[in-house]
Nucleic acid binder design. Sequence first.
DNA 1: CTAGGGTTAG
Length: 621
Amino acid sequence: MQSRRCCVAAAVGVPAVGSVVDEFTKLCYQRDLPRAMRAMEVMERCGIWADAVTYSELIKCCLARRAVEDGKRVHRHVFSNGYEPKTFLINIFLSMYVKFGLLDEAMKLFDKMPERNVVSWTTMIAAFSNVGMSGDALEFFVLMLRSGVRPNMFTFSSVLRACESLRTLRQLHCGMIKPGLESDVFVRSALIDNYSKWGELQTALSIFNEMVTGDSVVWNSIIGSFAENNEGDEALSLFKRMKRAGFFANQGTLTSVLRACTSLSLLELGRQVHVHILKYDRDLILDNALLDMYCKCGSLEDAKGVFSRMAEKDVISWSTMVAGLAQNGFSREALELFDSMKGSGIKPNYITLLGVLFACSHAGLVDNGWYYFQSMSRLYGVEPGREHYGCMIDLLGRAGKLDEAAMLISEMKCEPDAVTWRMLLASCRVHKNVDLAAHAAKQILKLDPTDVGTYILLSNIYANSQRWDDAAKVRKAMQAEGVRKEPGCSWIEVEMQIHCFILGDKSHPRTEDIGVELQQLVQRLRGIGYNPDTNFVLQDLEGEQREDSLRYHSEKLAIVFGLMSLATSKTIRIRKNLRICGDCHIFAKLVSQLTQRTIVIRDPIRYHHFRDGICSCGDYW
DNA sequence: CTAGGGTTAG
């Protein structure tokens, strides 16, 4: 309509009108917002409009300068004097409101649109998905289908972000197969991410493998999926495939690769990635991943180096470093770092405070712990959540204040879960409070009847206090549930290769050498006071078998293998699936004393640095 | 005019 007016104006020889539009168009393309706005007002007085593409240029200019009022002014202009903008042009305003974060305005405009095309619907669906209004996104998707508008790849990749169950995901997936939209790279990476979010890695992988032409983002999606789900091996082999396929690793790729190194405790490979990164672009997320990798691989010197050299630090950098120090047994340093965080202007969050409380609980700092716990809401605006309570229960329990710990559970504002009770149970075991332990264990098993550790712990607690009948009942209940103990397993990296040792498994090619070596080592250790403590045997074993099983705890095998295969200057770094037992802890301390080697053992919760017969945990874990 | 990947705890 507007082009007809302009044509007419030009045809009847009114140069003023045509030149106003020309001038306006020129100013829009030059991104001269103030003058374009003045020209627009002149046009409005004359009752003339430019074409839609020109307006879209002007809106880009408003968006770039975050000129909200000007944007709204342009919106009013195209609706003035009965002018009827096309859907294309209204969509531009819809998207403008969404980008300005004015969802209400976008909704109002959407409601009064005379017709809505796929872009209009998709704009709204994407807007809802991005602010977490998943219900509305899905509802609009359904309304869109009902109104007869067919979704395109943009729609599917937007609505996939709002998908909140595996069922919905599968339905959406089916819906995109018929129109052939799943081969779009955006849709494919969204599908991969979504299936991975639900732990459906094999589905994610088959969607990935069906890809004919992909791009680096799809590669990053699949590598990231495996890295996030602690499938580091697969993530790394996909990374190799990616390089073979000729794709360039960018920061996103390397972040996932580092995460894979972290979950596998592959310090040497992580270092290689670090060297690679130094040559290319670094960025904050990648630096954070690097920092975390060094912390989790137990190399605090490297972590501190990265942290101090980071150009920019955010709350994640600080949280990672605080928690990293705490988990590695440097609680005081962790708290000092938290103090200096205050001067940095970065506000601690929920996770930062978890690290702080963790530091207190693992160093027995009861007063500091109470202080942080009670002041976190007032000072940092973070309400204590379940995990914060968990740290406090752990702190009080370890310090022997079991009643206070139990009291705190009853005062919790959120429901205690199995993890909460497990904290109490662990303390009951250390301080041998059988009755409270039984209570905690029953709560755990009510919430999680398959928790093997709890059955075993409870039966051991009964056994240690000679309550054999109760111990037997627990074992029966465990058998009735059909649960089995996960075998202890330790990993050690030697020359970029992971060696895995499982309790009772003799498949390692050097099993016999290791056994001989271990026996000799135990003899030498006995000379400096080692006496195997069979209290830590958690299985149904009797007599000599008990000591035998203890002798082959996987971390002992891994330590011996480390001594045999690593240069004497190297730290022996071991990662294991279960928490270290008291006997292996003494064993590792004495080995570090006898051989003058540093040993670092990472369990699912924390780290032990053994050096000269002393552990960084201070025997408190 | 509408869409995709990477970091802290558990």
